[in-house]
Design a binder for these strands. Sequence first.
DNA 1: CAGAACACTAAACGTGCGTACAGCATCGGG
DNA 2: CCCGATGCTGTACGCACGTTTAGTGTTCTG
Lengths: 212, 212
Amino acid sequence: MSSVADEGDLTAKATIRNAALRLFAERGHDAVTVREIAAAAGVSPALVVHHFGSKDGLREAVDGYAAKAFDALFAMDEHDLAEMLTGGNSMSIAEMFARAFPHGSPLPAYLRRLLLVNDPAAAALFGRWYALTGRLLDSMTEIGAVRPTEDPAVRAAFFLVNDLALILLRNQVAAAIGVDPLTPEGVARWAKEVTAVYTTGAFVSAPRQEPS
Amino acid sequence: MSSVADEGDLTAKATIRNAALRLFAERGHDAVTVREIAAAAGVSPALVVHHFGSKDGLREAVDGYAAKAFDALFAMDEHDLAEMLTGGNSMSIAEMFARAFPHGSPLPAYLRRLLLVNDPAAAALFGRWYALTGRLLDSMTEIGAVRPTEDPAVRAAFFLVNDLALILLRNQVAAAIGVDPLTPEGVARWAKEVTAVYTTGAFVSAPRQEPS
DNA sequence: CAGAACACTAAACGTGCGTACAGCATCGGG
DNA sequence: CCCGATGCTGTACGCACGTTTAGTGTTCTG
């Protein structure tokens, strides 16, 4: 009853939404109770229902809020596309995540939930990012910055999936290489190696492709 | 009461475990009830508790079963390591998944769940696969099949993560490129493009690395 | 300044959950 | 032949969940 003002001057509704976003991202929708969300937001459970109609309504509100945040990222993406083509310093989705969301933001983890639970909203997001990746690679191929390929669909999916993998497996990668790959230091170290592989390759030559 | 024999000559206990594995993989532990598992296995809910003690006991049994399946994959991995080095036809984890698990197996989806919820078993699995990837790349570097890198830790993580991403984002990739990447046809198409990028790169040159 | 609208709470309700318990067949060993 | 063990079911219990309801201040508005 006193921690409503914990998050600055946010309204109680926004506080509830933020608490739900964080808890949903950490543990999944099913594992979080309305009472927990209310406690985390410092309000009564009934107020959650009062503002959002039901737990599922809250879920939809959180989904919409996250989608808007990701769309903002997407718009920035579109805007920087031309700059990327001319400037030459490419930027991955993971890099944009690291830049756009301050350390500790629950949004990367929420995206992970969405993608791995086969949420339709995440499928739409993936589709848009896939289309963008394809367009970007096409443009870069036209200007000679990227080698042509027989299978541009798979190449675009490969690039996108590699990028998202860093968000999906963030914790495991952090444990493996000793630095969180979504921090500025981590993303720099990661991008350096990835750029090297994407530019010159890693395998020296291909002795054979398929045995039979 | 009659579908116990639906899965051949399996015992009821194994039938329950399989049903739980499939349901857990599809919808997550929390979203599946003991009554659903029992119905899917064609037994009474009480029998689930009788055989596994509790829902959590069932979860542990399923985890152990899945871990054994993944360990078998891992052993095959170790065995094929030398062959890979000499034969030259490299094999990704995703390829081994496609080979080892027949179409429709719930195990890929279960691995996805394990990684999603930051299960310690999944962390251990990731750690072992990461070590294996690092060893493999080291060996291949020694014999001149892979270019040396300043940051072998990140390179190993990059390769592993790209591989796992195909399992994690299987559905989205299937929707994007029009073929399930964990089927023989899909994995062949995917591997061809990935090998090309890993061998010759995709970017023509690197104009700049980091602006400031 | 009356009164509607709004933000919010305490308490309770009904449902579906995991689980416990008692009992019923079937069967192998003394 | 019996009898403990095993596999399995029907029923019921207690609890935690999402949600409802009734009510209390507090704030806009005419």
